[in-house]
Nucleic acid binder design. Structure first.
Length: 569
DNA sequence: GCCGTTTTCGGCCCGACTGTTTTCAGTCG
């Protein structure tokens, strides 16, 4: 995807320009452009063809020219020139916590260092101490930063970090007045760098002490009167901030971000002659106009309250200024059925009966049992005979249920040529068919796209499971032309899954929004292999929210009859 | 380098914490 390639180049350019000491606003322009390109749903190639690149937020004449240059020649000369002056390895050095552009530049100018490994040797050899302004403490911080870089590899999965945040909140509940999770975790980003916890209390010292003394706490990184950062399990960094109860709303907004969303709000405040910071919204005389709740502050800026999952500066501020402009987001409680789960018939941990019971306990009106198909040997895929036998079992169990409908389903493999792993005769006997790619993952774009499209053309296939196949931090997406996939999904009334497992979250937020725009419905399912996995639904719903999806865009918010009628097979 | 409810030039978000400093620069979020 050229969007992401160009975004990465703009990101590297912004870092190198910053190290070079360029105009900070120019640096920011490149960063803004990167962020725009990363969250776009259309490809730059198409937009360029239409001559509309300058319509993209943060792209002006100059950057539009650079995008065209990259599309046509595969490189950007300005970036090549920059790399001649500064090694691109400085970008990774800038990624070390505590090392900013000035330090990176200082070190490079004296030692010509161009990688983290080289920097680590210098630091350990005591060479950095010869530099003006660097003493032992700074060296130790750089080395610690390098360690953090190596260990955390930058990110933690949402589904790992959120439970830890819950434990911290529970541990501090007694000493905290109000307490909440903020930051990217509150926005439910798929991966987070750290956990932000916000507390309102008139006695900050007591809260900070309780935090430092809690059994979860590992090494303390910084600790002042309003902020303490420390490391917990697995090197996850938790930042705790304490604010006065009167500025709770302003602080919660500020620390929830995103940074870009906050900047948008501050600009709006400035245009009104106001100032917004973490303490409140102030007029020119310094008088507080709003601070206690987020709703108050948004209202004082003539905005509707914006749900945290939308706060990414993807048009939400503008939408919130118009009455009814914000989406009425789908919620966990709207989901009536989970349509992707496994049992001991293939690679699940529970029997069919136990899985049904676990799902019923969550209050669903319907579920689909969808074990793997025959060619997925590693996951115990069911033979033709087995799947027929399993259908019988599910039908018998369904008859015994009250209040929950159990659909006989399958997660059928999409074979490498786009045909399915069961004959239509078998698929026709099932109530619900999920079709997924599990093999030959490295096909080229055209082949893979054709393969998925062919599967969608089968009238029995209601949804494509984990459509991109990515595994967060471990495996990239298949190479798919999503414009073509979405168009065919809309035409055939085939849904795309939002696989809710926090290791997948597939499709992601950006593709959810694209699906909405393309008129494609999604189905949020857990792909549960045990009872605990069923709880992952909240991550999938949050991803749908981040993609601006409303109840009507999510098929499994509908009653079972209506859901099944959507693609009549 | 972008962008327009003050606009096509002159702005561009704001404060806390740390370390190396005697009043502030750098980094971070």
């Amino acid at each position: 995807m050229k969007n992401l390639e160009i975004a990465a180049i703009f990101g590297d350019m912004s870092d190198l320009l910053e190290i070079q000491g360029a105009n900070p606003f120019r640096v920011r322009a490149y960063r803004n452009a990167r962020s725009s390109l990363e969250s776009m749903t259309d490809t730059v190639e198409e937009i360029a063809k239409r001559g509309k690149l300058e319509d993209i937020q943060g792209i002006g004449k100059d950057l539009a020219g650079k995008i065209v240059e990259y599309i046509e020649s595969g490189k950007i000369q300005a970036f090549e020139d920059l790399k001649k002056e500064l090694p691109v390895g400085l970008v990774e050095i800038l990624g070390i916590p505590t090392v900013g552009p000035r330090t990176a530049r200082l070190i490079f100018d004296h030692f010509g260092v161009g990688s983290i490994a080289d920097l680590e040797k210098l630091a350990k050899g005591g060479k950095l101490l010869t530099l003006q302004g660097i003493k032992e403490k700074t060296v130790q911080n750089i080395l610690r930063g390098i360690e953090i870089c190596k260990r955390r590899d930058g990110t933690f999965l949402l589904g790992r970090a959120l439970p830890i945040a819950g434990e911290v909140i529970a541990a501090l509940a007694e000493v905290a007045g109000q307490i909440a999770c903020a930051g990217s975790l509150r926005r439910m980003k798929e991966t987070v760098h750290d956990v932000d916890i916000l507390v309102a209390s008139g006695n900050a010292d007591q809260v900070m002490k309780a935090f430092r003394d809690s059994p979860l706490a590992g090494r303390v990184l910084v600790s002042g009167p309003t902020k303490t950062s420390l490391l917990v399990t697995d090197g996850l960094q938790v930042d705790l901030r304490v604010v006065e109860p009167d500025s709770w709303g302003a602080a919660l907004m500020y620390f929830t971000g995103s940074k870009e969303h906050n900047i948008r709000l501050r600009e709006r405040a400035i245009r009104r002659g106001l100032k917004l910071n973490e303490y409140g919204l102030f007029d020119e005389a310094g008088k507080v106009l709003a601070s206690k709740t987020e709703e108050d502050i948004y209202a004082a800026l003539e905005l509707e309250w914006i749900p945290p999952t939308l706060r990414e500066d993807r048009g939400e501020v503008g939408a919130s200024a118009r009455s009814g402009g914000l989406p009425d987001l789908v919620e966990v409680g709207d989901i009536r059925g989970d349509l992707h789960m496994h049992t001991t018939w293939s690679d699940g941990a529970l029997s069919t009966a136990d899985m049904i019971e676990a799902a019923r306990a969550r209050g669903y009106q319907y579920i689909a049992i969808t074990d793997h198909s025959k060619s997925l040997g590693v996951a115990g895929g069911l033979s033709d005979e087995d799947v027929l036998e399993h259908i019988d079992e599910i039908r018998k169990l369904d008859k015994k249920q009250k209040g929950i409908r159990v659909l006989a389903g399958t997660e059928v493999d999409i074979r490498k040529d786009g045909t399915l792993d069961y004959a239509d005769e078998i698929l026709g006997r099932l109530d619900f068919v999920v079709a997924s790619v599990h093999s030959n993952l490295r096909q080229d774009r055209k082949t893979m796209t054709g393969r998925v499209i062919r599967a969608m053309q089968n009238p029995h296939v209601r949804v494509i499971g984990h459509p991109t196949g990515r595994l967060l931090g471990d495996r990239d997406s298949y190479d798919l032309d999503f414009d073509a996939v979405m168009a065919e999904a809309a035409r055939t009334r085939t849904c795309l899954e939002v696989n809710a497992h926090y290791y997948r979250l597939d499709i992601n937020d950006v593709l959810c929004r694209k699906a909405r725009e393309a008129g494609v419905k999604v189905i949020v399912s857990t792909d549960a292999h045990n009872a605990d996995d069923l709880r992952n639904l909240e991550y999938g719903v949050a991803t749908a929210q981040r993609g601006w999806l409303e109840k009507e865009h999510v098929l499994n918010t509908r009653p079972v009859g209506e859901m099944l009628a959507y693609k009549a097979s």
